[in-house]
Design a binder for these strands. Structure first.
Length: 875
DNA sequence: CTAGACACGC
DNA sequence: GACGTACGTGTCTAGT
């Protein structure tokens, strides 16, 4: 049998230490948690370091102890336990139960006595004992078999007292610590000691006489008249103080060492408690303790030509290492494989040649785990390997768990789990002009560490999602969507260079003409794109009134210029110049640069970025191609089918956010409006202005539309006042009237804010979360913003859930129907396809069908579709 | 190379 | 009553 190791903890002392060492934290229910948190951190640390076989946490029982019979002022003058701490004791006890650690208290004895008694018993039985407390008095228990650990500054920083260490520090034996207390007293326990004797004098005396008793036996030899007098006068006090300071190692403790077996924690229970208390960091460390930095620093990842058979298994992490983020074009360096034990790296050219590897990658039944499956699949496709069976995506899992964390690479994600030892991509490759690919061995280790992290973190990440009831959202929605988005990106959308060039020429001509006119009217040439120079011309040279200022000078934003349009002809020209300039630089020149040799544009969908659950699109952004103004809309003529004779087909949800609002709020009038198939803005206007739909004027409808817009996007009264060009007060009144007309919406908005306050987050219909820590902020701005977000995110996020689900269903449907049609783009509430002309009729039926049935709400979802020779013509 | 101003979409 | 106000991306200028 291995030697017993007994761990004895001083519960009260450690709870106090934790409480005062940490700032006053609260969970989302307002329960104070700092002492529990500190206690938990300390427990985790000592369990890991000490690996005890037996454990006990001793508590002080009641107010009075046997020491009060000796001295009734014992521990007098102590501050009352703060209520913020008192309320935490039940949680600590509950947590210790979950750890399956024995707890014990004994009437009229202190925790010290329980610990003292048990440590002596343990020593007697030949066990090794470690005592942990925040109270230095316990050092008197140190012996050859007993080590006493006293917390230092924080709660996890511990000083170990062995007899040698006590000797080193005080020049005394552990037993003499009691005598020292007897002589010098202890103000915290209100032990008097001998007045005028402090630590220095006490140690000096004990070195000479050994004990308090020894001091009085040899009192004649005490040097110093004053000291001798004081000792003589206070002999009783000294003897009593020693008695008070002595830990009773023979207290009537009813438990035996054998009863203290520590079976290990009930992790599920601990997880529950920690979740209730929001101990995020601890939760993440629980299942995936971060490897020591040295372990990752010494990480080995051999470069092999072939994948070892042992790694071609079910549940292995893969990591495609690329020279840059743009995986459609970046150089593919190689592939790392890791099962959490063995990790290897295979160069890109060897990946291509390894048939066994390709077969494994394509085997749906053997799960591959990774970070950013969309990028991994794209890179593998470029290597000529079709992978299948992606079973885990760390990027998506982290995003679903908490979208507010900015996730750039595996290193940053791993950091969220307490893994600090993985260098960032930037640290390995450098940045900007100094960016370069290092030697293959270094790339291998870097890629290997990332694959290793995925293998190790999969379980923890999935557990977290399951605990939050988000596993399904992640597994059934986001993960399959990643592959579909990957297909859409890889498919790309054909862009006609000539169309763009043609529009560009036209724009350039117009721009040159406007530019000349502006210079003429201004009487000088200047850079119109420079707000600084433009401000000088408008507000200083031409004397127009500066309506708004920015941090750096005059504002020349469009809304300001609109207000000045009647005062000077130059303003109209500038507005037009800006508009056309934007079209030319962003959409003509910008898009031309993004056309690949295959004549297509391959955007990147960011699936783990927005706070609401929407996608975003980059390089280029295809979600903001102009549509409102005809001149810009023409850009869409350049987006054409990639096969001769094919058609573009587009379908968009009509008023999806307001329908979601109707569903989620259950507002009867709003629901009825949609059931009636009414024009929602006209209906809203009628309700708000108390007129019949026929009496709604265009201004009323415009105002109602702006309010609906505001509700959907969570804008403030100020935002509404800006968009309607009215005062904030008027806008506020307007919102009030709206909410009076739709009481269900008002109740829903209030409940969303209340939910955010209660839980710390809001959710969508499919359990997407957004955490809103600012909801309790005392800063009005932050709080207001969080409140509007609480109202708006469930709506916008649910709309995002719906179209994502529709995309998955659509992908399956196209496959099932054996159609050639391809889904190409998603623009938040719109899907764009290309198809052979004979499939237009089919799509006209099935696309709206699928989109409308993606999720069943109390109001119908409505989809409008159209086809044409270009994206422009799908209207 | 970064921050600010601006403009495009939903 | 303050405060600075949906979410994104890209381009340009003007600082370092």
């Amino acid at each position: 049998m291995t030697k017993r190791k007994v761990l004895l903890l001083d519960g009260n002392s450690l709870a106090y230490r934790a409480f005062f060492a940490l700032p006053l934290l609260t969970n989302d229910q307002g329960v104070h948690t700092n002492a529990v948190y500190g206690f938990a951190m300390m427990l985790q640390k000592i369990l890991e370091e000490e690996k005890p076989t037996h454990m006990l946490v001793a508590w002080d029982a009641g107010k009075t102890t046997f020491r009060h019979e000796t001295f009734k002022e014992y521990k007098g003058g102590r501050q009352k336990t703060p209520p913020e701490l008192s309320e935490q004791f039940p949680y600590i006890r509950k947590m210790l139960d979950a750890y399956k650690i024995r707890q014990y208290e004994l009437n009229s004895y202190e925790a010290d006595d329980i610990i003292g008694t048990l440590s002596r018993e343990a020593a007697h039985e030949g066990a090794e004992t470690v005592v942990i407390s925040g109270d230095k008095d316990l050092t008197q228990l140190a012996s050859g078999d007993v080590t006493v650990c006293i917390t230092r500054k924080g709660i996890t920083d511990i000083e170990r007292y062995t007899p040698d260490h006590v000797m080193e520090k005080y020049g005394l034996t552990p037993e003499q610590i009691i005598d020292m207390k007897g002589l010098m007293g202890d103000s915290s326990d209100n032990i008097p000691g001998v007045p005028g004797v402090g630590e220095k004098t006490a140690i000096k005396l004990l070195k000479q006489f050994g004990t308090v008793e020894g001091v009085y036996e040899g009192i004649g030899e005490v040097s110093g008249k004053k000291l001798k007098e004081k000792l003589e006068e206070n002999e009783e006090l000294a003897r009593m103080s020693k008695q008070l300071a002595t830990i009773d190692t023979g207290s009537p403790v009813e438990v035996k060492i054998g009863d203290l077996q520590y079976p290990g924690p009930d992790t599920d229970e601990i997880v529950k408690i920690w979740q209730e208390l929001n101990f995020k960091t601890l939760l993440e460390k629980l299942d995936a303790p971060a490897p020591a930095e040295e372990e990752l620093a010494a990480f080995e990842c051999p470069v092999t030509e072939h994948a070892p058979e042992s790694l071609l298994a079910d549940g292995v992490a893969i990591h495609l290492e690329l020279s840059g983020e743009q995986y459609h074009t970046a150089e593919i360096l190689g592939l790392a494989l890791s099962d959490g034990e063995e990790t290897v790296f295979i160069r890109a050219e060897d990946v291509k040649a390894d048939e066994r590897l390709a077969e494994w990658l394509g085997d749906e039944s053997r799960a591959k785990w990774c970070t950013d499956s969309k990028a991994a699949l794209a890179a593998l496709t470029r290597l000529g390997v079709e992978a299948d069976g992606i079973g885990f995506d760390l990027l998506l899992a982290s995003y679903i768990a908490n979208p507010s964390v900015s996730l750039t690479d595996t290193a940053s994600i791993a950091k969220e789990f307490g893994w600090t030892g993985i260098p960032s991509d930037e640290a390995v490759y450098g940045k900007g002009a100094r960016k370069a690919v290092p030697a293959v061995e270094d790339v291998a280790v870097h890629a290997g560490r990332k694959a290793y992290a995925v293998a190790k973190l999969k379980e923890t990440a999935e557990e977290k999602l399951k605990a939050n009831e988000q596993f399904e959202l992640y597994r059934q929605l986001e993960l399959p969507l990643a592959s579909i988005l990957g297909k859409m990106e890889a498919q790309g959308v054909k862009a006609d260079r000539d169309t763009l060039l043609h529009i560009g020429e036209d724009l350039s001509g117009k721009l040159a003409a406007i530019e000349r006119e502006i210079y003429e009217v201004a009487g000088e040439t200047f850079n119109i794109n420079s707000t600084k120079q433009l401000g000088t011309v408008l507000f200083e040279k031409l004397g127009l009134p500066p309506i708004k200022k920015t941090k750096t000078g005059y504002s020349t934003a469009a809304d300001v210029l609109e207000k000045l349009a009647d005062r000077h002809e130059i303003v109209r020209h500038i507005l037009e110049y800006r508009q056309l300039g934007k079209l030319n630089s962003t959409y003509i020149e910008g898009l031309l640069k993004e056309i690949h040799p295959d004549g297509k544009i391959h955007t990147y969908y960011q699936q783990a970025l927005t706070q609401t659950g929407r996608l975003s699109s980059t390089s280029p952004n295809l979600q903001n191609i102009p549509v409102r103004i005809e001149e810009g809309r023409k850009i869409r003529k350049a987006f054409i089918p990639s096969e001769p004779g094919w058609m573009m087909f587009a379908a968009d949800y009509s008023q999806i956010e307001l329908r979601v609002l109707a569903h989620m709020s259950g507002d009867e009038r709003l629901i009825q409006a949609f059931l009636d198939g009414a024009d929602i803005h006209t209906r809203t206007a009628g309700d708000v202005f108390h007129v019949s739909p026929e009496e709604v004027t265009s201004d009323m409808r415009r105002a109602a539309k702006a309010v609906n817009f505001g509700i959907v996007y969570g804008i403030s009264d100020y935002g509404l006042s800006q968009s309607l060009n009215i005062t904030r007060k008027e806008a506020g009144e307007f919102i009030d009237r709206y909410l009076k007309s739709f009481p269900g919406v008002k109740a829903y908005m209030d409940s969303s804010v209340a939910e955010a306050r209660k839980c710390g987050y809001v959710t969508t219909l499919l359990n997407r979360r957004r955490y809103l820590p600012d909801i309790t902020s005392s800063n009005f701005n932050l709080r207001s913003f969080a409140e509007r977000t609480a109202m708006n995110t469930p709506i916008q996020g649910t709309a995002a859930d719906i179209i994502k689900k529709a995309m998955i269903m659509m992908d399956e449907r196209l496959e099932k129907e054996g159609l050639k049609a391809r889904m190409l783009l998603q623009v938040h509430d719109e899907l764009i396809f290309e198809c052979p002309p004979e499939e237009v009729a089919v799509l006209e039926k099935i696309v709206p069908d699928v989109m409308e049935s993606a999720l069943s709400l109390t109001v119908p979802l409505k989809v409008e579709s159209a086809s044409g020779a270009s994206w422009y013509d799908t209207k």
